[in-house]
């Protein structure tokens, strides 16, 4: 459990002339849940999106430094982004199912990675939905549109869709910010059952959530990583004054 899954080294990120991340150094342990916290615009989501190179989709982004996933610098030229994203899955702030059936949503990932046999796909769909604790709610309506699900169900569907391509790192970008408290609870419980098999990084603006579910917490401010530590330590005994101010609600 002590082995390192992700290491970020001297990472700087610029949107045009605007520097959004400054000299980030970070190590993420395998099989743990790490929470990124900090006020809006502090760079926590931006950093998350460098871990599966989602920032590639945005024009005008420049990155220096290194990000190692399993000892491989993912910004090396020979890295295949498709393979990287297969290993590092992502769930977004707003549930974003495709306007297709529940089944096709889950089968989408496996299909683009070349799995064609119906029996294999059926098995993946069922397993992924089971893992996302959604199977019992949708097993009779797999052919129905995913847009008919509630927001919380849609988000768990997106988690299932991510799991279907068999990643080992799960990035979650404020996955519960658009959900009601009960759906939030379900997603939080889900992270606990998933953490034995996956390395999870979750961005949240909700400090209680970070405290409830994460093993490690990283606090960001204005594009700087201020403090990274065990969650318990950061919430009970923050070393940096700014961390303390933030978690005690003096700003943010």
């Amino acid at each position: 459990m002590t082995s390192e899954k992700i290491r970020v080294q001297d990472l700087n990120l610029y949107y045009g002339d605007n520097q959004a991340l400054h000299d980030i150094q970070l190590s993420v342990k395998k099989g743990s849940i790490t929470a990124f916290i900090g006020p809006s615009g502090c760079g926590k989501s931006t950093l998350l999106r460098t871990l599966n190179r989602m920032n590639d989709l945005i024009d005008n982004v420049r990155i220096t430094g290194k990000v190692y996933v399993d000892e491989q610098n993912i910004y090396d030229n020979q890295v295949d982004v498709v393979q990287l994203r297969k290993h590092v899955g992502m769930v977004f702030q707003r549930p974003n199912p495709f306007p297709m059936s529940i089944y096709d949503n889950i089968a989408y990932g496996p299909r683009i990675h070349g799995i064609k046999k119906k029996r294999d796909l059926d098995e993946i769909v069922e397993r992924s939905l089971q893992q996302a604790a959604l199977w019992n709610e949708v097993k009779d309506r797999l052919k129905k549109s995913a847009l008919g699900l509630s927001g919380g169900q849609q988000q768990r569907l997106c988690i299932a869709r991510m799991l279907a391509v068999d990643p080992d790192v799960l990035l979650m970008d404020e996955p519960t910010s658009a959900l009601d408290p009960i759906s939030t609870l379900k997603v939080e419980e889900l992270t606990q059952t998933l953490k034995s098999r996956y390395t999870i990084i979750i961005v949240t603006h909700n400090m209680q959530q970070a405290a409830r579910i994460s093993d490690y917490t990283v606090f960001f401010l204005n594009g700087h990583l201020v403090e990274a530590s065990e969650t318990n330590a950061i919430f009970t005994n923050p070393k940096d004054k700014r961390t303390e101010d933030y978690i005690t609600g003096r700003f943010g």
Partner: peptide, 19 residues
């Protein structure tokens, strides 16, 4: 969000457009 979701699953641009 469709493009993001698809890219995050490892789809290429053309796969996203086509599927």
């Amino acid at each position: 969000s469709y493009r993001e979701a698809s890219a995050a699953l490892g789809a290429t641009k053309w796969q996203t457009i086509k599927s």
